[in-house]
Design a protein around this nucleic acid. Sequence first.
RNA 1: GCGGGUAUAGCUCAGUUGGUUAGAGCAUCUGGUUGUGGUCCAGAGGGUCGUGGGUUCGAGCCCCAUUACUCGCCCCA
Length: 414
Amino acid sequence: MSSLQPVRGTHDLMFDDIRRHRLVQAKFAALAAHYGYSEITTPIFEATDVFARTLGDTTDIVTKEMYTFETKGGESVTLRPEGTAGVARAFISEGLTQQTPLKFFYHGPMFRHERPQKGRQRQFHQIGAELLGVPGPQGDVEVIALADHTLRELNLSGHITLELNSLGDTESRAAYRAVLIDFLFGHREKLSAESRERLEKNPLRVLDSKEPADKEIVVSAPRFPDYLNQTSRDFFKAVQDGLNNLGIFFKLNSSLVRGLDYYSHTAFEFTTEALGAQGTVLAGGRYDGLIKQMGGPPTAGIGWAAGVERLAMLLSDLPPLPRPIAMIPVGESEDAIAQKLSHRLRNSGFNIDIGYSGNMGKRMKRANKLNARVALIIGEDEVKQSVVTVRQLDSGEQSRVAMADLESHLDLYR
RNA sequence: GCGGGUAUAGCUCAGUUGGUUAGAGCAUCUGGUUGUGGUCCAGAGGGUCGUGGGUUCGAGCCCCAUUACUCGCCCCA
């Protein structure tokens, strides 16, 4: 056991792990393109303000989880803890504000300095989609449909449920916040220490406290839906109708609160029981105020992000790896011709594995381990007659094929 | 940041009340087969028992510290 470890909360991804990640990315990328979204890659770090000013001064992400450092020029930069702020920044700095509606999707690493846990790492990966400049509920419906479709495409919809809530517009939220604070203050003494702190920083969070004592109080708390104004109510209704129209099932959850400050109206989470404490697999919402807050023109926005590690853990079987054709020179004198033949076959689209050294037995073992379908054996005899011995590894049958005819003979295994 | 659990071979794990030279399976390598893999047989290599200290005649085992992993809290994808 080596003492050389990757930095806490980071992981090397290889073999099946990275294949799972690729599968998630590839299926999502294909589907997003199908919905008319185009890919965007924003920098992995941004000026610290991009995150600090938008995510909310009181959120844990900003107060204690950001990887922030100073550049040689004295500028404060931060490794991105999430994807939306960067896309919003690009929207403004690339002068795209006249080109709405815009539909973007992305994938890539994110960084948060938290205590690692199952499904939670300091460097982790997200896929996400953002729809900019669509203020109406059809935007919410489309974005949620893309999320739902992505999960279905990954065969995960079975053990995942969609939870839905509305945080209302600014006016509704302010109104509710006021009565909620009022109510909670009345029960201040009975609240848990954590919730008393939440009361100061982010009162809505008290609603999904897991403390039994808190839960008891929360049951009789004023309910968010009752404080939505007519506009917010109509909007939420339209989103629900839209989802019903598409046959997408959801569960209303009035205590669902998104962590980041920039959300309004629709908030949603796809959750599972299968990942312990990290049940949220995909989450998002509407953020109509964000672009303006960052200095752009008022622009509606809605989007979501999903944790690739969490999705990857839920995937069942990976598709099998392609079976290569093993090129096996019998001795050193056949190396050159084997290499030349491999090159020719690779150029015609065949998947060729050529062992780098070892006697024939070793190379056959390697071919077997790689699950090769066919071995191409080239020895002195074969070279003399310009043929190759083609051995089917599953059946053990073998025959000789003229080198010139190899491509057409192997066509089955392309 | 707070709490619980774990740490023995490349991997998964045994290791009795503290007692000789720390084991198994899988994997790797060699040979049986110098032009034929998978199965089989025989053999080999591989360990500062996470790290540092302590108790003891004696520590993989007990105690303390520390690090990593892991699960939960907080928070979040």
